[in-house]
Design a protein around this nucleic acid. Structure first.
Length: 563
RNA sequence: GGGGGCGUAGCUCAGUUUGGUUAGAGCACUCGACUGUCACUCGAGAGGUCGCGGGUUCGAGCCCCGUCGCUCCCGCCA
Protein backbone atom coordinates (compact mmCIF):
# COMPACT_ATOMS: atom_id res chain seq x y z
CA UNK A 1 0.00 0.00 0.00
CA UNK A 2 1.22 3.49 -0.72
CA UNK A 3 2.03 5.72 2.21
CA UNK A 4 -1.22 7.58 2.92
CA UNK A 5 0.72 10.63 4.13
CA UNK A 6 2.95 10.97 1.10
CA UNK A 7 0.37 12.91 -0.98
CA UNK A 8 0.16 15.58 1.72
CA UNK A 9 3.10 17.50 0.24
CA UNK A 10 2.01 20.80 -1.34
CA UNK A 11 3.54 23.95 -2.72
CA UNK A 12 3.68 25.28 0.84
CA UNK A 13 5.04 22.25 2.67
CA UNK A 14 7.31 19.36 1.89
CA UNK A 15 6.19 16.94 4.64
CA UNK A 16 3.52 16.50 7.25
CA UNK A 17 4.99 17.23 10.69
CA UNK A 18 4.30 13.87 12.24
CA UNK A 19 5.90 11.93 9.38
CA UNK A 20 9.49 13.01 10.00
CA UNK A 21 11.90 10.27 11.02
CA UNK A 22 15.61 9.65 11.32
CA UNK A 23 15.78 8.88 7.58
CA UNK A 24 14.92 12.52 6.85
CA UNK A 25 17.95 13.81 8.76
CA UNK A 26 19.85 16.42 6.80
CA UNK A 27 16.90 17.40 4.62
CA UNK A 28 15.58 20.92 4.43
CA UNK A 29 11.86 20.83 5.05
CA UNK A 30 8.91 23.20 5.10
CA UNK A 31 6.10 22.39 7.54
CA UNK A 32 2.69 23.78 8.36
CA UNK A 33 0.85 23.07 11.57
CA UNK A 34 -0.53 24.14 14.91
CA UNK A 35 1.57 25.10 17.94
CA UNK A 36 0.72 22.23 20.29
CA UNK A 37 2.95 23.30 23.16
CA UNK A 38 6.05 25.39 23.60
CA UNK A 39 8.93 25.50 26.03
CA UNK A 40 11.01 28.65 26.40
CA UNK A 41 14.23 27.94 28.25
CA UNK A 42 15.56 31.45 27.80
CA UNK A 43 17.37 31.90 24.55
CA UNK A 44 16.54 28.33 23.57
CA UNK A 45 12.97 27.62 22.54
CA UNK A 46 11.14 24.41 21.63
CA UNK A 47 7.81 24.16 19.89
CA UNK A 48 5.87 20.92 19.41
CA UNK A 49 4.27 21.37 16.03
CA UNK A 50 1.14 19.35 15.29
CA UNK A 51 -0.74 18.30 12.21
CA UNK A 52 -2.93 15.36 11.32
CA UNK A 53 0.10 13.10 10.99
CA UNK A 54 1.39 13.81 14.48
CA UNK A 55 3.85 15.95 16.39
CA UNK A 56 7.41 17.02 15.74
CA UNK A 57 9.69 19.13 17.88
CA UNK A 58 10.98 22.32 16.31
CA UNK A 59 14.02 23.86 18.00
CA UNK A 60 15.04 27.49 17.95
CA UNK A 61 18.68 27.76 18.95
CA UNK A 62 20.76 30.97 18.58
CA UNK A 63 23.38 28.81 16.84
CA UNK A 64 21.01 27.86 14.02
CA UNK A 65 18.06 30.28 14.12
CA UNK A 66 18.15 34.04 13.40
CA UNK A 67 17.21 36.28 16.35
CA UNK A 68 13.95 37.49 14.78
CA UNK A 69 12.88 33.87 14.20
CA UNK A 70 13.49 33.04 17.86
CA UNK A 71 11.58 36.15 18.91
CA UNK A 72 8.62 35.18 16.72
CA UNK A 73 8.61 31.64 18.10
CA UNK A 74 8.77 32.92 21.68
CA UNK A 75 5.65 35.02 21.27
CA UNK A 76 3.56 32.54 19.31
CA UNK A 77 0.65 31.31 21.44
CA UNK A 78 -0.58 27.74 21.53
CA UNK A 79 -2.92 26.75 18.70
CA UNK A 80 -1.44 29.39 16.39
CA UNK A 81 -1.18 28.18 12.81
CA UNK A 82 2.40 28.54 11.61
CA UNK A 83 4.72 27.79 8.73
CA UNK A 84 8.23 26.60 9.55
CA UNK A 85 11.28 26.09 7.43
CA UNK A 86 14.33 24.31 8.73
CA UNK A 87 16.63 21.34 8.69
CA UNK A 88 15.82 17.91 10.05
CA UNK A 89 18.52 16.91 12.52
CA UNK A 90 19.09 13.81 14.63
CA UNK A 91 18.74 14.74 18.25
CA UNK A 92 21.67 14.15 20.56
CA UNK A 93 21.41 10.63 22.02
CA UNK A 94 20.20 11.71 25.48
CA UNK A 95 17.67 14.12 24.06
CA UNK A 96 15.59 11.62 22.13
CA UNK A 97 11.99 11.15 23.10
CA UNK A 98 10.78 7.58 22.86
CA UNK A 99 7.20 8.56 23.54
CA UNK A 100 7.07 10.60 20.36
CA UNK A 101 6.99 8.88 16.97
CA UNK A 102 9.26 11.59 15.57
CA UNK A 103 11.26 11.71 18.79
CA UNK A 104 14.60 10.78 17.22
CA UNK A 105 14.69 14.02 15.25
CA UNK A 106 13.89 17.70 15.49
CA UNK A 107 13.58 20.50 12.98
CA UNK A 108 16.08 23.32 13.46
CA UNK A 109 14.13 26.34 12.30
CA UNK A 110 15.56 28.93 9.95
CA UNK A 111 12.23 30.58 9.24
CA UNK A 112 9.00 30.93 11.22
CA UNK A 113 5.78 32.60 10.14
CA UNK A 114 2.55 32.88 12.10
CA UNK A 115 -0.20 32.70 9.49
CA UNK A 116 -3.02 32.36 12.01
CA UNK A 117 -2.40 33.87 15.43
CA UNK A 118 -4.59 32.19 18.04
CA UNK A 119 -6.49 33.50 21.01
CA UNK A 120 -6.30 31.36 24.12
CA UNK A 121 -8.48 28.37 23.25
CA UNK A 122 -11.76 28.00 25.16
CA UNK A 123 -10.92 24.41 25.93
CA UNK A 124 -7.37 23.12 26.07
CA UNK A 125 -6.23 21.01 23.11
CA UNK A 126 -2.93 19.73 24.46
CA UNK A 127 -3.59 17.66 27.52
CA UNK A 128 -1.09 16.55 30.11
CA UNK A 129 -0.96 13.02 31.41
CA UNK A 130 -3.83 12.40 33.77
CA UNK A 131 -5.64 15.64 32.94
CA UNK A 132 -9.38 15.27 32.51
CA UNK A 133 -11.34 16.08 29.39
CA UNK A 134 -13.59 19.14 29.55
CA UNK A 135 -17.35 18.61 29.87
CA UNK A 136 -19.04 17.02 26.89
CA UNK A 137 -21.12 20.14 26.32
CA UNK A 138 -18.02 22.31 26.00
CA UNK A 139 -16.30 19.80 23.77
CA UNK A 140 -19.26 19.84 21.42
CA UNK A 141 -19.61 23.62 21.51
CA UNK A 142 -15.95 23.98 20.56
CA UNK A 143 -15.90 20.98 18.28
CA UNK A 144 -13.17 22.37 16.03
CA UNK A 145 -10.85 22.49 19.03
CA UNK A 146 -11.88 19.11 20.35
CA UNK A 147 -11.26 17.49 16.99
CA UNK A 148 -7.71 18.83 16.99
CA UNK A 149 -6.80 16.29 19.65
CA UNK A 150 -4.61 13.55 18.26
CA UNK A 151 -6.70 10.84 19.92
CA UNK A 152 -9.90 12.05 18.28
CA UNK A 153 -8.20 12.37 14.94
CA UNK A 154 -7.00 8.81 15.35
CA UNK A 155 -10.63 7.74 15.75
CA UNK A 156 -11.57 9.42 12.51
CA UNK A 157 -8.61 7.89 10.71
CA UNK A 158 -9.57 4.44 11.98
CA UNK A 159 -13.14 5.03 10.90
CA UNK A 160 -11.96 5.89 7.43
CA UNK A 161 -9.85 2.75 7.23
CA UNK A 162 -12.72 0.56 8.41
CA UNK A 163 -14.98 2.01 5.76
CA UNK A 164 -12.40 1.41 3.07
CA UNK A 165 -11.86 -2.14 4.32
CA UNK A 166 -15.62 -2.73 4.27
CA UNK A 167 -15.90 -1.54 0.68
CA UNK A 168 -12.92 -3.61 -0.37
CA UNK A 169 -14.14 -6.77 1.33
CA UNK A 170 -17.71 -6.61 0.07
CA UNK A 171 -16.93 -5.33 -3.41
CA UNK A 172 -14.46 -8.19 -3.85
CA UNK A 173 -17.33 -10.59 -3.10
CA UNK A 174 -19.74 -9.18 -5.62
CA UNK A 175 -21.71 -6.81 -3.42
CA UNK A 176 -22.84 -3.59 -5.09
CA UNK A 177 -22.71 -0.38 -3.09
CA UNK A 178 -26.14 1.16 -3.67
CA UNK A 179 -28.06 3.92 -1.94
CA UNK A 180 -31.66 4.03 -0.73
CA UNK A 181 -33.81 7.09 -0.02
CA UNK A 182 -33.44 9.00 3.22
CA UNK A 183 -36.85 10.71 3.17
CA UNK A 184 -39.52 8.01 3.26
CA UNK A 185 -42.91 7.23 4.67
CA UNK A 186 -43.07 6.19 8.31
CA UNK A 187 -42.42 2.48 8.81
CA UNK A 188 -43.65 0.07 11.48
CA UNK A 189 -40.25 -0.77 12.91
CA UNK A 190 -39.30 -0.72 16.53
CA UNK A 191 -37.68 2.63 17.09
CA UNK A 192 -39.59 5.83 16.57
CA UNK A 193 -38.94 7.58 13.30
CA UNK A 194 -37.53 11.03 13.03
CA UNK A 195 -40.23 13.11 11.43
CA UNK A 196 -39.59 15.92 8.99
CA UNK A 197 -42.43 18.29 8.12
CA UNK A 198 -43.18 18.76 4.45
CA UNK A 199 -43.65 22.21 3.01
CA UNK A 200 -45.45 20.97 -0.07
CA UNK A 201 -47.86 18.72 1.81
CA UNK A 202 -48.81 20.79 4.80
CA UNK A 203 -49.48 18.73 7.90
CA UNK A 204 -47.69 15.67 6.61
CA UNK A 205 -44.33 14.30 7.56
CA UNK A 206 -41.46 12.51 6.00
CA UNK A 207 -39.65 10.00 8.15
CA UNK A 208 -35.91 9.59 8.34
CA UNK A 209 -35.26 5.87 8.29
CA UNK A 210 -34.02 4.24 11.47
CA UNK A 211 -32.40 1.89 8.97
CA UNK A 212 -32.82 1.31 5.26
CA UNK A 213 -34.97 -1.78 5.72
CA UNK A 214 -37.53 -1.46 3.02
CA UNK A 215 -36.00 -0.25 -0.16
CA UNK A 216 -33.06 -2.56 -0.10
CA UNK A 217 -35.38 -5.49 -0.51
CA UNK A 218 -36.53 -3.98 -3.75
CA UNK A 219 -32.98 -4.55 -4.96
CA UNK A 220 -33.28 -8.23 -4.16
CA UNK A 221 -36.66 -8.55 -5.83
CA UNK A 222 -35.21 -6.75 -8.81
CA UNK A 223 -32.35 -9.19 -9.12
CA UNK A 224 -29.43 -7.00 -8.09
CA UNK A 225 -28.48 -10.03 -6.01
CA UNK A 226 -25.99 -8.52 -3.62
CA UNK A 227 -26.09 -5.06 -2.08
CA UNK A 228 -24.43 -3.14 0.67
CA UNK A 229 -24.59 0.35 2.00
CA UNK A 230 -22.71 2.26 4.65
CA UNK A 231 -25.92 3.82 5.74
CA UNK A 232 -26.82 6.67 8.01
CA UNK A 233 -29.62 5.74 10.37
CA UNK A 234 -31.85 7.87 12.56
CA UNK A 235 -34.06 7.29 15.55
CA UNK A 236 -36.01 9.57 17.79
CA UNK A 237 -35.58 7.82 21.11
CA UNK A 238 -34.36 9.10 24.43
CA UNK A 239 -30.60 9.09 24.45
CA UNK A 240 -28.24 7.02 26.50
CA UNK A 241 -24.51 7.29 26.87
CA UNK A 242 -24.07 4.66 24.15
CA UNK A 243 -27.10 5.56 22.06
CA UNK A 244 -27.12 8.36 19.56
CA UNK A 245 -29.72 10.11 17.47
CA UNK A 246 -27.97 9.19 14.29
CA UNK A 247 -25.44 6.54 13.58
CA UNK A 248 -23.92 4.56 10.75
CA UNK A 249 -24.43 0.92 10.01
CA UNK A 250 -23.19 -1.41 7.36
CA UNK A 251 -26.29 -2.77 5.72
CA UNK A 252 -26.07 -5.90 3.58
CA UNK A 253 -28.57 -7.95 1.61
CA UNK A 254 -27.99 -11.01 -0.53
CA UNK A 255 -30.05 -13.44 -2.61
CA UNK A 256 -29.83 -17.19 -3.20
CA UNK A 257 -28.07 -17.68 0.11
CA UNK A 258 -28.54 -19.94 3.09
CA UNK A 259 -27.75 -19.29 6.71
CA UNK A 260 -24.24 -20.69 6.44
CA UNK A 261 -23.43 -18.36 3.54
CA UNK A 262 -24.52 -15.41 5.61
CA UNK A 263 -22.62 -16.47 8.69
CA UNK A 264 -19.42 -17.15 6.81
CA UNK A 265 -19.62 -13.80 5.04
CA UNK A 266 -20.34 -11.96 8.30
CA UNK A 267 -17.46 -13.64 10.11
CA UNK A 268 -15.19 -12.74 7.22
CA UNK A 269 -16.19 -9.11 7.36
CA UNK A 270 -15.83 -8.88 11.12
CA UNK A 271 -12.45 -10.57 10.85
CA UNK A 272 -11.34 -8.15 8.14
CA UNK A 273 -12.47 -5.09 10.09
CA UNK A 274 -10.79 -6.12 13.30
CA UNK A 275 -7.65 -6.98 11.33
CA UNK A 276 -7.70 -3.46 9.92
CA UNK A 277 -7.83 -2.26 13.52
CA UNK A 278 -4.84 -4.42 14.40
CA UNK A 279 -6.64 -7.26 16.17
CA UNK A 280 -6.39 -10.86 15.02
CA UNK A 281 -9.62 -12.65 15.87
CA UNK A 282 -10.33 -16.30 15.27
CA UNK A 283 -12.96 -17.51 12.84
CA UNK A 284 -15.25 -19.32 12.74
CA UNK A 285 -16.84 -18.01 15.91
CA UNK A 286 -18.17 -20.53 18.40
CA UNK A 287 -21.93 -20.97 18.30
CA UNK A 288 -24.43 -21.24 21.09
CA UNK A 289 -28.17 -21.61 20.81
CA UNK A 290 -30.49 -19.11 22.37
CA UNK A 291 -31.95 -21.83 24.59
CA UNK A 292 -28.50 -22.86 25.73
CA UNK A 293 -27.48 -19.27 26.40
CA UNK A 294 -30.57 -18.63 28.50
CA UNK A 295 -30.11 -21.89 30.40
CA UNK A 296 -26.42 -21.44 31.17
CA UNK A 297 -26.14 -17.65 31.38
CA UNK A 298 -29.69 -16.36 31.75
CA UNK A 299 -29.08 -13.96 28.91
CA UNK A 300 -29.17 -13.94 25.11
CA UNK A 301 -25.95 -11.98 24.93
CA UNK A 302 -23.78 -13.78 27.43
CA UNK A 303 -20.35 -12.53 28.33
CA UNK A 304 -18.34 -15.67 27.53
CA UNK A 305 -15.03 -14.39 28.84
CA UNK A 306 -15.72 -16.36 32.00
CA UNK A 307 -17.71 -19.47 32.92
CA UNK A 308 -19.65 -19.11 36.16
CA UNK A 309 -22.47 -21.07 34.60
CA UNK A 310 -25.96 -21.38 35.97
CA UNK A 311 -26.90 -24.79 37.44
CA UNK A 312 -30.34 -26.31 37.77
CA UNK A 313 -30.71 -27.54 41.35
CA UNK A 314 -34.46 -28.10 41.25
CA UNK A 315 -33.99 -31.79 41.96
CA UNK A 316 -32.05 -31.03 45.15
CA UNK A 317 -34.79 -28.75 46.51
CA UNK A 318 -37.86 -30.62 45.25
CA UNK A 319 -38.12 -33.09 48.17
CA UNK A 320 -37.41 -30.50 50.85
CA UNK A 321 -40.02 -29.08 53.19
CA UNK A 322 -39.12 -25.48 52.36
CA UNK A 323 -42.05 -23.33 51.40
CA UNK A 324 -40.23 -20.91 49.12
CA UNK A 325 -38.87 -23.50 46.71
CA UNK A 326 -41.79 -25.86 47.16
CA UNK A 327 -44.36 -23.33 46.02
CA UNK A 328 -42.15 -22.10 43.18
CA UNK A 329 -41.67 -25.64 41.88
CA UNK A 330 -45.36 -26.41 42.31
CA UNK A 331 -46.14 -23.39 40.15
CA UNK A 332 -43.98 -24.82 37.37
CA UNK A 333 -40.82 -22.92 38.24
CA UNK A 334 -37.34 -24.17 38.89
CA UNK A 335 -34.51 -23.49 41.30
CA UNK A 336 -31.32 -22.42 39.55
CA UNK A 337 -28.27 -20.56 40.58
CA UNK A 338 -24.53 -20.08 40.51
CA UNK A 339 -21.80 -21.27 42.77
CA UNK A 340 -19.01 -18.85 43.56
CA UNK A 341 -15.56 -20.06 44.49
CA UNK A 342 -14.33 -17.96 47.40
CA UNK A 343 -17.77 -16.39 47.80
CA UNK A 344 -18.00 -17.90 51.26
CA UNK A 345 -15.77 -15.08 52.46
CA UNK A 346 -18.15 -12.35 51.33
CA UNK A 347 -19.80 -10.29 54.03
CA UNK A 348 -23.48 -10.28 54.81
CA UNK A 349 -23.69 -6.80 53.28
CA UNK A 350 -22.01 -7.89 50.06
CA UNK A 351 -24.48 -10.73 49.61
CA UNK A 352 -27.40 -8.44 50.52
CA UNK A 353 -26.33 -6.20 47.66
CA UNK A 354 -26.54 -9.16 45.30
CA UNK A 355 -30.02 -9.94 46.56
CA UNK A 356 -31.08 -6.34 45.96
CA UNK A 357 -29.75 -6.69 42.41
CA UNK A 358 -31.72 -9.91 41.89
CA UNK A 359 -34.87 -8.31 43.24
CA UNK A 360 -34.51 -5.25 41.04
CA UNK A 361 -34.36 -7.67 38.11
CA UNK A 362 -37.64 -9.24 39.13
CA UNK A 363 -36.71 -12.15 41.39
CA UNK A 364 -38.61 -12.50 44.65
CA UNK A 365 -35.41 -13.18 46.52
CA UNK A 366 -31.98 -14.72 46.48
CA UNK A 367 -31.40 -17.97 48.36
CA UNK A 368 -27.93 -18.27 49.79
CA UNK A 369 -25.88 -20.97 51.41
CA UNK A 370 -22.16 -21.24 52.01
CA UNK A 371 -20.01 -24.20 52.94
CA UNK A 372 -17.13 -23.92 55.36
CA UNK A 373 -15.47 -27.31 55.93
CA UNK A 374 -18.44 -29.57 56.52
CA UNK A 375 -20.64 -26.76 57.85
CA UNK A 376 -23.45 -25.21 55.79
CA UNK A 377 -24.47 -21.69 56.76
CA UNK A 378 -27.14 -19.32 55.65
CA UNK A 379 -30.90 -18.85 55.96
CA UNK A 380 -31.68 -22.00 53.95
CA UNK A 381 -29.03 -24.25 55.49
CA UNK A 382 -31.39 -25.74 58.06
CA UNK A 383 -33.70 -27.02 55.31
CA UNK A 384 -30.96 -28.97 53.57
CA UNK A 385 -30.72 -32.71 54.19
CA UNK A 386 -27.69 -34.81 53.26
CA UNK A 387 -29.09 -35.68 49.86
CA UNK A 388 -29.69 -32.01 49.05
CA UNK A 389 -26.21 -31.07 50.24
CA UNK A 390 -24.54 -33.60 48.02
CA UNK A 391 -26.77 -32.58 45.10
CA UNK A 392 -25.70 -28.93 45.49
CA UNK A 393 -22.06 -30.09 45.29
CA UNK A 394 -20.66 -27.09 47.10
CA UNK A 395 -16.93 -27.22 47.74
CA UNK A 396 -15.27 -25.81 50.82
CA UNK A 397 -15.43 -21.99 50.82
CA UNK A 398 -18.00 -21.78 48.08
CA UNK A 399 -21.15 -19.70 48.14
CA UNK A 400 -24.30 -20.87 46.40
CA UNK A 401 -26.80 -18.26 45.21
CA UNK A 402 -30.14 -19.51 43.91
CA UNK A 403 -33.33 -18.09 42.50
CA UNK A 404 -36.61 -19.98 42.70
CA UNK A 405 -39.33 -19.22 40.21
CA UNK A 406 -40.27 -19.20 36.56
CA UNK A 407 -37.41 -18.83 34.05
CA UNK A 408 -38.96 -15.65 32.79
CA UNK A 409 -38.06 -13.77 35.97
CA UNK A 410 -35.20 -15.99 37.17
CA UNK A 411 -33.10 -15.56 34.03
CA UNK A 412 -32.66 -11.79 34.15
CA UNK A 413 -32.00 -11.94 37.89
CA UNK A 414 -29.37 -14.67 37.54
CA UNK A 415 -27.79 -12.77 34.66
CA UNK A 416 -27.38 -9.65 36.78
CA UNK A 417 -26.02 -11.60 39.76
CA UNK A 418 -23.64 -13.56 37.57
CA UNK A 419 -22.23 -10.44 35.96
CA UNK A 420 -21.82 -8.67 39.29
CA UNK A 421 -20.04 -11.67 40.82
CA UNK A 422 -17.72 -11.90 37.82
CA UNK A 423 -16.93 -8.20 38.17
CA UNK A 424 -16.17 -8.64 41.89
CA UNK A 425 -13.93 -11.60 41.21
CA UNK A 426 -12.35 -9.85 38.23
CA UNK A 427 -12.95 -12.92 36.07
CA UNK A 428 -13.17 -11.19 32.71
CA UNK A 429 -10.07 -10.66 30.61
CA UNK A 430 -10.20 -6.99 29.58
CA UNK A 431 -8.40 -7.68 26.34
CA UNK A 432 -10.55 -10.62 25.26
CA UNK A 433 -13.31 -10.06 22.74
CA UNK A 434 -15.10 -13.43 22.94
CA UNK A 435 -17.01 -13.23 19.68
CA UNK A 436 -19.75 -15.79 19.44
CA UNK A 437 -22.84 -16.60 17.41
CA UNK A 438 -26.15 -16.91 19.18
CA UNK A 439 -28.46 -18.94 16.97
CA UNK A 440 -32.05 -20.25 17.03
CA UNK A 441 -33.68 -17.27 18.65
CA UNK A 442 -37.36 -17.71 19.27
CA UNK A 443 -39.43 -15.91 16.71
CA UNK A 444 -41.85 -14.44 19.23
CA UNK A 445 -42.12 -13.61 22.86
CA UNK A 446 -45.51 -14.37 24.35
CA UNK A 447 -46.95 -12.21 27.06
CA UNK A 448 -47.90 -14.64 29.85
CA UNK A 449 -51.13 -12.79 30.60
CA UNK A 450 -52.46 -11.48 27.32
CA UNK A 451 -50.94 -14.29 25.21
CA UNK A 452 -50.05 -11.64 22.67
CA UNK A 453 -47.04 -12.34 20.45
CA UNK A 454 -44.29 -9.81 19.97
CA UNK A 455 -41.27 -10.23 17.72
CA UNK A 456 -38.12 -10.87 19.71
CA UNK A 457 -35.97 -9.29 17.02
CA UNK A 458 -37.21 -7.05 14.31
CA UNK A 459 -40.27 -8.73 12.87
CA UNK A 460 -38.88 -9.38 9.41
CA UNK A 461 -36.80 -12.40 10.22
CA UNK A 462 -37.97 -15.62 8.66
CA UNK A 463 -39.12 -18.39 10.98
CA UNK A 464 -37.27 -21.67 10.97
CA UNK A 465 -38.92 -23.59 8.11
CA UNK A 466 -38.82 -26.92 9.97
CA UNK A 467 -40.66 -25.42 12.94
CA UNK A 468 -43.23 -23.89 10.66
CA UNK A 469 -43.91 -27.25 9.03
CA UNK A 470 -43.94 -29.22 12.28
CA UNK A 471 -46.17 -26.87 14.28
CA UNK A 472 -48.06 -24.68 11.80
CA UNK A 473 -50.60 -23.62 14.38
CA UNK A 474 -48.19 -22.67 17.14
CA UNK A 475 -46.12 -19.68 16.03
CA UNK A 476 -45.14 -19.00 19.65
CA UNK A 477 -42.92 -22.12 19.47
CA UNK A 478 -41.12 -21.16 16.24
CA UNK A 479 -37.49 -20.36 16.17
CA UNK A 480 -36.16 -17.59 13.96
CA UNK A 481 -33.90 -18.35 11.03
CA UNK A 482 -31.38 -15.86 12.19
CA UNK A 483 -28.25 -15.48 14.17
CA UNK A 484 -26.60 -12.73 16.11
CA UNK A 485 -22.94 -12.05 16.59
CA UNK A 486 -22.19 -11.16 20.16
CA UNK A 487 -19.02 -9.83 21.59
CA UNK A 488 -18.21 -9.36 25.20
CA UNK A 489 -18.22 -5.73 26.01
CA UNK A 490 -15.05 -3.93 26.73
CA UNK A 491 -15.09 -1.35 29.41
CA UNK A 492 -13.60 2.08 29.28
CA UNK A 493 -14.19 5.00 26.97
CA UNK A 494 -13.41 4.51 23.33
CA UNK A 495 -12.60 0.84 23.67
CA UNK A 496 -16.09 -0.56 23.62
CA UNK A 497 -16.20 -3.62 21.39
CA UNK A 498 -19.50 -3.29 19.66
CA UNK A 499 -22.23 -5.83 20.05
CA UNK A 500 -22.73 -7.00 16.53
CA UNK A 501 -26.01 -8.21 15.33
CA UNK A 502 -26.68 -10.00 12.13
CA UNK A 503 -30.18 -11.31 12.08
CA UNK A 504 -31.02 -13.03 8.84
CA UNK A 505 -34.22 -12.05 7.25
CA UNK A 506 -37.10 -13.03 5.05
CA UNK A 507 -40.84 -12.98 5.13
CA UNK A 508 -42.66 -12.90 8.42
CA UNK A 509 -44.25 -16.27 7.86
CA UNK A 510 -47.83 -17.35 7.59
CA UNK A 511 -50.36 -15.97 5.18
CA UNK A 512 -50.69 -12.32 4.27
CA UNK A 513 -53.24 -11.68 6.99
CA UNK A 514 -51.09 -13.30 9.64
CA UNK A 515 -48.12 -11.29 8.48
CA UNK A 516 -50.05 -8.10 8.62
CA UNK A 517 -51.20 -8.97 12.08
CA UNK A 518 -47.74 -9.82 13.28
CA UNK A 519 -46.18 -6.74 11.78
CA UNK A 520 -48.86 -4.66 13.46
CA UNK A 521 -49.64 -2.98 10.20
CA UNK A 522 -52.54 -0.64 10.05
CA UNK A 523 -54.46 -0.93 6.83
CA UNK A 524 -54.82 2.82 6.49
CA UNK A 525 -51.10 3.44 6.81
CA UNK A 526 -47.81 1.83 6.11
CA UNK A 527 -48.25 2.02 2.39
CA UNK A 528 -44.61 1.32 1.74
CA UNK A 529 -44.67 -1.85 3.77
CA UNK A 530 -47.88 -3.00 2.16
CA UNK A 531 -46.41 -2.42 -1.25
CA UNK A 532 -43.39 -4.40 -0.16
CA UNK A 533 -45.49 -7.31 1.00
CA UNK A 534 -47.51 -7.17 -2.17
CA UNK A 535 -44.37 -7.18 -4.24
CA UNK A 536 -43.34 -10.41 -2.56
CA UNK A 537 -46.02 -12.13 -4.55
CA UNK A 538 -43.78 -11.40 -7.52
CA UNK A 539 -41.30 -13.64 -5.78
CA UNK A 540 -38.20 -13.07 -3.82
CA UNK A 541 -35.15 -15.08 -4.66
CA UNK A 542 -34.69 -17.85 -2.11
CA UNK A 543 -33.59 -15.72 0.74
CA UNK A 544 -33.16 -16.48 4.32
CA UNK A 545 -30.61 -14.01 4.61
CA UNK A 546 -29.11 -10.73 4.08
CA UNK A 547 -27.71 -9.89 7.26
CA UNK A 548 -28.72 -6.65 8.67
CA UNK A 549 -26.26 -4.29 10.00
CA UNK A 550 -22.93 -4.68 11.43
CA UNK A 551 -23.26 -2.07 14.05
CA UNK A 552 -21.20 0.03 16.22
CA UNK A 553 -17.88 1.70 16.20
CA UNK A 554 -18.34 3.53 12.98
CA UNK A 555 -19.68 6.77 14.26
CA UNK A 556 -16.72 9.00 14.29
CA UNK A 557 -15.45 10.93 17.19
CA UNK A 558 -18.26 9.97 19.45
CA UNK A 559 -18.35 7.62 22.34
CA UNK A 560 -18.81 4.17 21.06
CA UNK A 561 -20.82 1.34 22.40
CA UNK A 562 -22.98 -1.56 21.51
CA UNK A 563 -26.03 -0.71 19.51
C1' G B 1 -42.82 10.05 31.00
C1' G B 2 -40.31 8.87 36.12
C1' G B 3 -36.00 9.04 39.54
C1' G B 4 -30.88 10.45 41.14
C1' G B 5 -26.54 13.70 40.64
C1' C B 6 -24.21 18.17 39.13
C1' G B 7 -23.86 23.77 38.01
C1' U B 8 -18.01 28.10 41.99
C1' A B 9 -11.94 31.60 37.54
C1' G B 10 -10.88 30.14 30.30
C1' C B 11 -10.46 24.37 31.84
C1' U B 12 -10.57 20.56 35.93
C1' C B 13 -12.18 20.88 40.82
C1' A B 14 -12.12 22.06 46.59
C1' G B 15 -15.28 25.00 49.82
C1' U B 16 -22.02 23.63 51.09
C1' U B 17 -22.04 18.82 56.47
C1' U B 18 -22.44 23.11 61.25
C1' G B 19 -24.62 30.38 57.34
C1' G B 20 -19.92 34.66 59.71
C1' U B 21 -13.28 38.68 57.92
C1' U B 22 -10.96 39.81 51.55
C1' A B 23 -14.30 32.61 48.03
C1' G B 24 -9.34 28.91 47.17
C1' A B 25 -6.00 25.11 44.38
C1' G B 26 -3.81 22.92 39.85
C1' C B 27 -3.56 23.86 34.64
C1' A B 28 -4.11 27.82 31.06
C1' C B 29 -3.24 33.32 30.50
C1' U B 30 0.12 38.16 31.26
C1' C B 31 4.97 40.01 32.89
C1' G B 32 9.99 38.69 34.54
C1' A B 33 14.28 35.01 35.03
C1' C B 34 16.46 30.74 32.84
C1' U B 35 20.85 27.71 26.49
C1' G B 36 18.58 20.83 25.71
C1' U B 37 13.52 20.94 27.15
C1' C B 38 9.56 17.53 25.84
C1' A B 39 3.07 18.10 31.24
C1' C B 40 10.48 22.41 31.37
C1' U B 41 11.49 24.96 36.01
C1' C B 42 11.31 29.34 39.27
C1' G B 43 9.19 34.33 40.76
C1' A B 44 5.23 37.88 40.36
C1' G B 45 0.37 39.22 38.49
C1' A B 46 -4.37 39.40 36.44
C1' G B 47 -8.78 36.71 36.25
C1' G B 48 -15.33 35.34 39.93
C1' U B 49 -23.22 38.36 38.53
C1' C B 50 -20.59 31.13 43.15
C1' G B 51 -26.37 29.06 36.51
C1' C B 52 -30.81 32.45 37.05
C1' G B 53 -35.12 34.51 40.05
C1' G B 54 -37.38 34.90 44.69
C1' G B 55 -37.48 33.89 50.07
C1' U B 56 -35.56 33.16 55.34
C1' U B 57 -31.72 35.86 58.22
C1' C B 58 -28.25 41.13 61.35
C1' G B 59 -25.56 38.26 57.55
C1' A B 60 -26.41 33.24 52.11
C1' G B 61 -21.56 30.06 47.54
C1' C B 62 -23.79 27.29 51.96
C1' C B 63 -30.68 26.94 54.26
C1' C B 64 -35.91 27.07 51.65
C1' C B 65 -39.09 27.64 47.04
C1' G B 66 -39.15 28.16 41.88
C1' U B 67 -36.65 28.02 37.22
C1' C B 68 -32.97 26.94 33.34
C1' G B 69 -28.96 23.92 31.67
C1' C B 70 -25.99 19.51 31.80
C1' U B 71 -25.51 14.44 33.15
C1' C B 72 -26.58 9.30 34.69
C1' C B 73 -30.31 5.52 35.46
C1' C B 74 -35.46 3.35 34.61
C1' G B 75 -39.22 3.44 30.90
C1' C B 76 -38.35 3.58 25.73
C1' C B 77 -34.79 1.72 22.25
C1' A B 78 -31.76 -3.37 18.16
Amino acid sequence: MTDPLQPLATSLRTHPCGALRAEHAGQTVRLGGWVHRSRDLGGLVFIDLRDRAGLVQVSFDPATSPAHVIAAATSAGVESVVLVEGTVALRPEQMRNKEMASGDVEVRATSFTVVGPAVTPAIPVARGKGEKMPAEELRLRHRHLDLRRPELQANLVLRHRLMQATRRFLSDRGYLELETPILTKPTPEGARDFLVPSRMHAGEMFALPQSPQIYKQLFMMSGLDRYFQIARCFRDEDLRADRQLEFTQIDIEASFVGREDVMVMAEGLVHALWAEGGHAIKVPFPRITYADAMERYGCDRPDLRYALEIRDVTAAFAPLDFVVTKSAIAAGGRVRGIVIPGGGGWSRKQVDELEALAKSAGASGLLRVKRTGTEYEGPIAKFLDDAAKSALALNDGELGLFVAGPDRTANPALDRVRQECAARLNLADDKALAFTWVVDFPMFDQDPETKALAAVHHPFTSPNPDDMKARPGAPESWRAAGADVRAARHHGPGRAGAALRLPARGAAGGGPAARRDRLRLRPDRDAARRRDLAARRDRLPQDDGGPRPVRGGTHAGARRGPA
